[in-house]
Every structure is written in structure tokens, then in C-alpha cells.
């Protein structure tokens, strides 16, 4: 996925733990972990809004686009 989520960087800057952030944003720690580890396939605007509010930042501080190959391989016949 060419979009990376720089959540851990913002969390370190704001000195906030994963559990506390998950609670403030209103998502489960498991889903926050999916976001942090760049496993997410999509992010809802409401989640992004809550993250920006909790971390006092802009969406561009959290998301970064790096051109690269897509990870979807061809399907067998």
C-alpha cells in the first residue's frame, strides 16, 4: 500500500499511549494497532477526524503517499 500512516510519530510527539488514544478516538486498541502497523485498507473520515482532534494535528501529518508497486497479485484461473 503506497499510503503510510505515521501515527506512531504523532503519538511520540504528543506523548500519548496507544490505550489512551484508542479511548479518546473511540476505536478498539486492535483497530488502532491495524492503523499503526499500516495494515489498514481504508480509514473512515470520522476516525480521521477523531484522530486529528485527539492528536491536535492535520490529516497530512498522519498520512503520507509514497509511490510504489501495488500489493495485489494476479488471481489463479
Amino acid at each position: 500500500m503506497p499510503i503510510t500512516v505515521n501515527l506512531d510519530i504523532m503519538m511520540a510527539r504528543r506523548r500519548i499511549g496507544a490505550g489512551e488514544l484508542a479511548e479518546r478516538v473511540g476505536i478498539t486498541p486492535a483497530n488502532l494497532s491495524i492503523l499503526k502497523n499500516n495494515k489498514a485498507r481504508a480509514v473512515r473520515f470520522s476516525t480521521l477526524e477523531a484522530l486529528c482532534k485527539a492528536l491536535d494535528c492535520q490529516p497530512a501529518d498522519l498520512l503520507e503517499y509514497t509511490p510504489g508497486p501495488d500489493d495485489g497479485g494476479p488471481e489463479a484461473p
Binding site: 489498514a40 485498507r41 473512515r44
Partner: peptide, 15 residues
């Protein structure tokens, strides 16, 4: 089923 698996993966990893 292949399409459903793709959609389920998308949904499972939507935060």
C-alpha cells in the same frame, strides 16, 4: 466468493 473475500478483507481492515 473471490469478490466477497476481497470485500470482506477491505471491510475487516477499515478503521
Amino acid at each position: 466468493f473471490a469478490q466477497a473475500v476481497r470485500m470482506k478483507n477491505e471491510l475487516d481492515y477499515t478503521v
